[in-house]
Computed example of a mutant assay.
Amino acid sequence: MTTPRLTPHAYVLAVPDLTRTTAYFEHVLGFSRLWNDGDNWQALGRDGVRVMLGRCPDAIPPAELGDHSYFAYVEVSDLDGFHAEIAAKGALLGFPPRDQPWGRREMAVATPDGHRMMFANPIRA
């Protein structure tokens, strides 16, 4: 019997301002538009990472969710290069790349709405 395999698909985020958040993912984080459903949904992708943004103007703002606003942990082949790319475009950094005691180099990035994600790679000896 073959073990079931999961295939990455997309993170789904409720956002109050679809236009603003789409622009941030596209122009700051380097994602490309994949498809949309009018003014309700926008899907974006970069490499194998996809994000589906849903317009939810009345939802609890992500910035008010505290630690629950984290939604992604993304592996990056060149974390410092990615940091340089997005920092130059005005990315909202929680903290820049730094080595962690658990053997990972990580950085925190936020969206204008307050969703937070981690980008990381293994520390190279």
Results as ranks from 00 to 15, higher is better:
residue 3 T to P: 06
residue 25 F to P: 07
residue 113 D to W: 02
residue 100 Q to G: 13
residue 120 A to N: 09
residue 15 V to G: 00
residue 80 D to L: 03
residue 112 P to F: 03
residue 37 D to C: 15
residue 53 L to M: 03
residue 42 Q to P: 05
residue 18 L to S: 06
residue 81 G to E: 01
residue 51 V to Q: 01
residue 116 R to Y: 01
residue 124 R to W: 07
residue 87 A to I: 01
residue 61 P to I: 09
residue 1 M to W: 13
residue 84 A to R: 04
residue 62 P to T: 01
residue 119 F to W: 06
residue 14 A to N: 11
residue 39 D to I: 06
residue 91 A to C: 00
residue 19 T to M: 07
residue 54 G to I: 10
residue 120 A to R: 08
residue 3 T to F: 09
residue 70 Y to R: 09
residue 95 F to Q: 04
residue 75 E to I: 08
residue 111 T to V: 08
residue 61 P to L: 10
residue 78 D to S: 02
residue 74 V to Q: 03
residue 15 V to H: 00
residue 4 P to M: 07
residue 41 W to N: 14
residue 69 S to F: 08
residue 35 W to K: 13
residue 44 L to V: 10
residue 90 G to P: 07
residue 22 T to R: 12
residue 107 M to W: 05
residue 84 A to T: 04
residue 115 H to M: 00
residue 80 D to C: 02
residue 88 A to R: 03
residue 28 V to K: 00
residue 108 A to W: 08
residue 69 S to R: 13
residue 122 P to T: 15
residue 89 K to C: 07
residue 15 V to K: 01
residue 56 C to Y: 08
residue 109 V to S: 04
residue 121 N to D: 14
residue 115 H to I: 00
residue 40 N to G: 13
residue 43 A to C: 12
residue 72 A to H: 07
residue 90 G to W: 07
residue 41 W to G: 08
residue 56 C to T: 05
residue 85 E to C: 12
residue 116 R to I: 01
residue 41 W to H: 15
residue 104 R to N: 13
residue 114 G to I: 03
residue 95 F to W: 09
residue 37 D to K: 14
residue 1 M to H: 12
residue 7 T to G: 03
residue 94 G to Q: 10
residue 112 P to C: 00
residue 75 E to F: 14
residue 93 L to A: 05
residue 35 W to C: 11
residue 108 A to C: 11
residue 51 V to D: 00
residue 72 A to I: 07
residue 70 Y to N: 11
residue 120 A to S: 14
residue 65 L to Q: 05
residue 106 E to P: 11
residue 54 G to T: 10
residue 49 V to I: 10
residue 114 G to R: 00
residue 3 T to G: 06
residue 115 H to W: 04
residue 111 T to C: 07
residue 125 A to L: 10
residue 58 D to W: 08
